[in-house]
Amino acid sequence: MTTPVTAPAITRRHFMITVAAGSAAAAWLAAAPARADKAMVDEAMKALIGDATPADGAEIIRLDLPQIAENGNTVPLGVSIDSPMTEDTYVKDVHVFADGNPRPDVISFHFTPKSGLAEASTRMRLAQTQNIVAVAEMSDGKVYMTQAEVKVTIGGCGG
């Protein structure tokens, strides 16, 4: 099963050939899992915010996400919104969805005026490269939405 060799025989050429062959095999073996799509995200969103149509929140909601995640099991996720966070004006909820996971729901953060800041962070699982959608509900009933893509590294020995 093993072939004894001397150190100098381990070359980059050997590496390239075996890795190329190995990755082809791995790609074939990796069966595509069931995953969410935009319709499922819309449905999950409707369950939380009803029939409200979110306005563009690109300038309102800041999503703190890596562009490339080394491993999909632990991807940092941060949300923040500028708000006075008073009894009159505050951010109530921020819902986060992922359109390429088996299920689209990720987390709903619930803030109150006593949160002081509409900012929170956690870590999430992403099954593959996909869009993260954040929907914010304000105390005045306004709803905003934004999204960002996270590339998830799969393969090699870290995947």
Binding site: M1, T2, T3, V5, A7, I10, H14, F15, T18
Partner: peptide
């Protein structure tokens, strides 16, 4: 330095 497995790779590779 021992190559092993179906991919015939050593730690050193």
């Amino acid at each position: 330095y021992q190559r092993r497995g179906q991919l015939d790779m050593a730690c050193a590779t």
